[in-house]
Amino acid sequence: MSLEEYRGVWVFIEQNDGKVEGVSLELLGAGRKLADKLEVPLAGVLLGEEIKTLSNNVISHGADEVYVIDHPVLKNYRTESYMKAVIYLAEKYKPEIFLYGATPNGKDLASAVATDLSTGLTADTTMLDIDLENRLLEASRPAFGGNIMATILCKKHRPQMATVRPKVMKALEVDSSRIGKIIEEKINLNEDEMRTKVLRIVNDVTKRANLADAHVIVCGGKGMGDEQNFQMLYELAETIGASVGGTRDVVEAGWLPHELQIGQTGETVTPKIYFAIALSGAIQHVVGMKNSEFIIAINKDPNAPIFDVATYGIVGDALEVVPKLIAQFKEIRSQKGGEISYA
């Protein structure tokens, strides 16, 4: 493989029901920086049925080019059909870097595409950079579920691919004056040849809305001691109108269901206020919450890494501090006779 034939940075634009996923716009922001460093164009890959109008949105978020394949078989995401379309484009236009959101569909697609293109794929990256001298993508991710980052390189194969965690990169400000090129492609796809059918899509926002859209989150760690102590976090959350989440340890101990896990293998959240209570702040967890606006950490250990990302820290036993916090909030509410509302 001649590596020089491969040029350009691509982002897979995930759309559901004609709406572009936030992570794809974030990746255009991150991809823009990589493309500028390499002095190559940034392109979005847009697949679906009647989706061409979304191209302008892709361009105004930073893309120079949009590759569009519009086909009824691409209406809903399916590995088989999407993979075919992406591989067709990648083989024809040969990008050097190809990024996907680390969503269920993005991960699924990237894994299949990497296998057929026999190239390297780095999962769930949280940092992207370029080694300009060697023209290499440096894709970094937390490793071993712990306090360490690993930078993964793909030296001899192209495209260099990575899935990227949602809400870690920043989308650019919309610039409607940007001008880009729309490249429409056609491929043969036959519904009869598809071995999977999407019969129904059921939107169940109840579980997710809790954390992803919460203004305030109370997140507890293993330091709460046991499941019974953990319950006091619900009381705090109820008092201030917050949602409850937990660390990986807490979920693995069975104190919380998996969908309430915050961190690398759980949800990434960006609330206004984040209470990190009795958790140490392993990288695994921090990547999922560090972009919160106002972070309050409560931990016995003054050296806990969570204090490094906290806006304010209370060094103390959560079992002692949390009840006091609850009491204070209740008092303020009764003094002013009302609810706490958030900007």
């Binding site: 999977t196 999407v198 169940d204 926002v205």
Partner: peptide
């Protein structure tokens, strides 16, 4: 899925 699920054959 990210929000909800899909039924696949």
């Amino acid at each position: 899925l990210t929000s909800g699920y899909e039924l696949i054959q």
